[in-house]
Design a protein around this nucleic acid. Sequence first.
DNA 1: CCACCAATTTGTAATCAGTACAATTTGGGA
DNA 2: TCCCAAATTGTACTGATTACAAATTGGTGG
Lengths: 135, 135
Amino acid sequence: MEEYVKILRKNGIKVTPQRLEILRFLDTHHTHPTADDIYNELKKKNPALSKTTVYNTIQSLKEHGLLISLAFSAHESRFDSVINNHHHLLCSECGNVIDIDIECPFTKRKAMGGHRIDEVHGYFRGVCKDCLGGK
Amino acid sequence: MEEYVKILRKNGIKVTPQRLEILRFLDTHHTHPTADDIYNELKKKNPALSKTTVYNTIQSLKEHGLLISLAFSAHESRFDSVINNHHHLLCSECGNVIDIDIECPFTKRKAMGGHRIDEVHGYFRGVCKDCLGGK
DNA sequence: CCACCAATTTGTAATCAGTACAATTTGGGA
DNA sequence: TCCCAAATTGTACTGATTACAAATTGGTGG
């Protein structure tokens, strides 16, 4: 049985072709795509795909902890299927989001100052190595 | 001369009543307001205030490093006039944003893995002390 | 103190990511 | 294979933010 079918079953998510394709895309493209990126890419193979389905599936995967959403800007969300903790850099030159693997002392904390901590997101803004080098 | 006039002059921002009010509001209300919060509050004193002016001023203050924007969710930005580095917790119960003062080893780093770092944002999602206590 | 002009403010209209909803389709258990 | 709750689709809607053009204004030079 395909790997992604197992993942969905294990999480009690009904298996559909749309969900499999979205999960596969997120798992094989760690480019931090927007919902629109996912929609446009998968529409090539399945022209009947609805944007609502993309949003519904993202919501479902998020609720089961299979993806996280990155909220760098106020007018679009980006998504990442990875669950291992890493931080993100938004390059102000090229607009790409780059993974930053650092040892953050807070990612494993479950409480802080009396508050319960469920998620830790580290966002950096700056200029990525490639854009710096090109100057 | 009023403190806020000095701040604007020092940054080469033309002084207007609207800008003074917005700067004063941000400096005296560290409640992480949205643009709409600012607009609705200041509209009480100046009914002619335009929402566009609020956005323009926010943009201008941001460019001069007088405020930072927090992008917790994809459909609204929140603003904070503070420049001293601290992180933020979004409480999933009450929706408030709470300042988290922790010693983060990355806030002073200017480079990382070859990338230039301009801003460091730490976002936590969880449940705040008050909401936990109420259970 | 006044006149002027570039910058600012205002209000309306447009944009665009995301959501609501109702009709159609479908996965998968009985 | 049948059936129905759940999923998908497409369209309409929402709400934060931006674009734009006309009216207003801060503040510098005279």
